[in-house]
Design a protein around this nucleic acid. Structure first.
Ligand SMILES: [Zn+2]
Ligand SMILES: [Zn+2]
Length: 731
DNA sequence: AGCACGCCGACT
DNA sequence: GTCGGCGTGCTC
């Protein structure tokens, strides 16, 4: 008889053996099967080739049904997922199911289901768009639909609204039909635009190196701004597509998908698909199938796109490789960057990790010769000066957290008809509401975390659990009506700036003022206009280019970084800082970047400002090496949480005792904890963690595999939530 | 996960 | 004397 290993979506590390139906002989590796487990029937995925056994000492159950006609994963991807399950200590079945669109997890077929599509009616086809002169949006929509049909899920991409289309439908100009998507090979019709003299000498050299590597290589492409980086991407992608192979582009956030989409569409006559968490199940399945069958030429997606199957993958690009968004923070905590590198290795193709500020992990890999670094050193051509300096706040006259000197600088830049950007990494009006009489502070009781006061809705918001309470009129402890705010948030900053500069327009951009994409776009359009203006924002503004004429940027409160308990805070800050100086400041003019701090002598800050990111990174790496922190050691954290503080801690205490006395324990293994997590209490739940550290990644992985089975059996772990975090990005 | 089995207290 | 709570073990 024939036996196969089947992975089931249950919290069990191993696979299960099942017997093939007697009449079935062909291999079914990678297909979904329906199998009996105990009293129920569940869906699983076949992990192995058929194993022929003559007689068995054990009775195996028989596979009830085979759902697919072919494997859902290439051999490469399947073996990578199996490896990943072991590396991240996460159940194999759950890992494999995670890599499938949810419709396939539910047992739906691997067929393209009909999608809704907008088309012109025959009446609409012959209607002149001039008749819609009075409604420009409808006019634009009809014009577009006369040229081509549009799937309903594409309407945002073309900046059409549902409402506009509905109105056109009412006029019987267009209709919404279910159509079977036509799949065709894109390659015969493929062409792309070549721009002459697009690249300078350095970029040409880089592109030549990237194009010459046909085998697995991990490149770290370090650029000084996004323009030169994108030029290189376009040239390398074109080179891969013209061989008929597919390209996967990974980005850290959804917004960036559309930026690249717009650029790629103008360049390549090839189908581009996108994948991110906001797609619905049908769209997700459609994209997954298109990539797998080779109908998409380029797939642009966020983290989970690294898991999809490709017919013929030729290149992976992972943009902004230092971004933490690539690390999954729930369940299977994989790192998309590391997974992507492993994937490129398995497929034997090259991968480009793009960044302006390489992560310390990648820098170490470059040092060790595992990754190859390529630099794009070209700055925006200009002989104008950028002066960056630390502004010592000690003994400075302050106006609500802004120094007199800074106000003077702002005024100068505004007088020159330029724009000023003030960064403050704190939303709301004020982070603390305190009683002037008895020093009581308003605190969220579910999180033991101070409420942030928001004036626009007169509510106190907990930034940990998003709980809200109306702003109290009197102190809840002594009852006196003398509550005052302490500290500065962006909302208050806007008010203060309006008072200081009553005649200058001020725009604030943070997640309180931006509800959706349209709102952001509207604001960006306003900002784009000429003239003096002050912009206020949190880090969401720092992700890329905003507008011309920003000649002064100031970070108002950077000292929180210096005190942060996370040793990675300064690294993250440096990356933000470089992003600002590379992309936001208008380098065609004389400009300034000012950091307000009480610690202007801080050596790391000085290195960053005087010598730049590379010098700082070298210092940080040396420091990490000295104290054996990642990337010079390896971490696994067991995280636990529960409504009961003791239950969460007890489980980890049990784990620690077991690990401590384990016979395979090596003297270099460090155990720290259980200690409360950084986010100790949130929404009523207490978070604890136990850290394992070891210089050898391989040892730690192996050792933990030995420890885990016992830990999984602890009854203390059954009634709480717990989870394993390999290579954590925050401790 | 989800289901069965078994042991113990409370309730006809 | 049995009903049902939950802690424990197991699923190919
Ligand atoms: Zn809270
Ligand atoms: Zn009081």
């Amino acid at each position: 008889m024939n036996i196969v290993k089947v992975a089931l979506p249950i919290p069990v590390m191993h696979a299960f053996n099942y017997q093939l139906p007697s009449n079935f002989l062909s291999p079914i590796k990678g297909r979904r099967v329906l199998v009996p487990l105990g009293k129920r029937m569940i869906l699983g995925i076949v992990l192995s080739d058929n194993i022929h056994v003559k007689c068995s000492y054990r009775q195996y159950k028989i596979i009830k049904e085979i759902l697919d006609y072919e494997s859902l994963f290439s051999d490469n991807l399947l073996s990578l997922l199996i490896w990943s399950s072991k590396y991240y200590h996460y159940p194999i079945g759950e890992v494999l199911f995670h890599a499938l669109p949810s419709l396939l997890r539910q047992g739906k077929g691997t067929i393209f289901s009909p999608l809704q599509q907008w088309q012109v009616t025959s009446y609409g086809k012959n209607t002149s768009i001039n008749q819609l002169r009075r409604s420009p949006k409808q006019q634009k929509a009809l014009k577009l639909l006369q040229e081509r049909n549009l799937y309903h899920h594409q309407i945002n991409e073309f900046e059409l609204s549902k409402n506009t289309l509905k109105l056109l439908k009412k006029k019987n100009l267009i209709q919404l039909l279910y159509v079977q998507p036509q799949m065709e090979n894109w390659y015969p019709n493929f062409y792309f635009f070549i721009k002459k003299k697009e690249l300078n000498l350095e970029q040409k050299t880089v592109v030549r190196i990237l194009n010459s590597k046909l085998k697995f290589t991990t490149f770290v492409l370090v650029s000084k701004n996004s323009f030169s980086k994108i030029k290189v991407y376009l040239n390398v992608i074109g080179n891969v597509l013209k061989t008929g192979k597919q390209v996967l582009l990974l980005v850290p956030e959804i917004k960036l998908i559309y930026n690249f989409m717009d650029i790629f569409k103008k360049r390549f006559n090839a189908p581009i698909d996108i994948l991110h968490s906001k797609l619905n199940n049908n769209e997700r399945l459609a994209v997954w199938l298109r990539a797998k069958k080779g109908y998409s030429a380029i797939v642009i997606g966020t983290r989970s796109a690294v898991l999809i199957s490709f017919m013929n993958l030729g290149l992976i690009i992972l943009d902004e490789e230092n971004d933490n968004a690539y690390k999954e923070q729930y369940g299977w905590r994989y790192h998309a960057r590391d997974f992507a590198v492993m994937r490129a290795k398995k497929e034997d193709i090259s991968i480009i990790l793009g960044t302006e500020t390489p992560s310390l992990e990648s820098l170490k890999n470059i040092d060790e010769g595992k990754y190859q670094r390529l630099d794009l050193t070209e700055q925006t051509k200009s002989n104008k000066k950028l002066s960056q300096y630390l502004l010592d706040l000690k003994c400075q006259p302050l106006k609500h957290g802004i120094s007199r000197i800074l106000i003077q600088r702002i005024e100068d830049h505004l007088l020159a008809n330029n724009k000023v950007l003030l960064f403050l990494n704190r939303r709301g009006y004020s982070p603390i509401l305190i009683c002037h009489n008895c020093s009581w502070i308003a605190e969220c009781l579910s999180c033991n975390y101070y409420y942030t006061l928001h004036y626009y809705d007169r509510q106190m918001h907990c930034h940990r659990c998003n709980n809200q309470l109306p702003m109290p009129i009197q102190c809840l402890k002594c009852g006196l009506k003398c509550l005052i705010t302490l500290g500065l948030g962006t909302e208050q900053l806007e008010k203060i700036i309006n008072n200081i500069f009553p005649d200058v327009p001020v725009t604030r951009i943070d997640s309180d003022t931006i509800y959706d994409k349209k709102e952001l776009k509207k604001k960006l359009e306003i900002i784009y206009k000429n003239g003096a203006r002050i912009l206020i924002g949190t880090q969401i503004l720092a992700k890329g280019y905003i507008c011309p004429d920003i000649t002064l940027v100031s970070l108002l409160n950077i000292d929180s970084v210096l005190f942060a308990s996370d040793y990675r805070a300064i690294e993250k800050f440096a990356q933000l800082y470089i992003k600002i100086s590379n992309n936001i400041i208008d380098r065609t003019k004389n400009s300034e970047l000012i950091l307000q701090t009480y610690y202007p002598e801080n050596p790391l800050l000085l290195t960053l400002i005087k010598k730049g990111y590379n010098a700082l990174a070298i210092e940080m790496l040396a420091e990490r090496r000295d104290v054996s922190l990642p990337p010079y050691s390896n971490h696994i954290i067991i995280r636990s949480e529960d409504y009961n503080d003791k239950s969460a801690a007890n489980f980890l205490e049990k784990c620690r005792q077991y690990i401590e006395q384990h016979s395979m324990r090596d003297s270099k293994l460090c155990l720290i904890g259980p200690i409360p997590a950084i986010k100790f209490k949130c929404a009523g739940r207490f978070h604890w963690q136990l850290l394992l550290q070891h210089p050898s990644r391989y040892y730690l992985q192996q050792f933990f595999s030995c420890v885990l089975p016992k830990i999984m059996k602890y009854p203390e772990g059954r009634k709480i939530k717990w989870n394993i975090d390999v290579d954590p990005i925050e401790n």
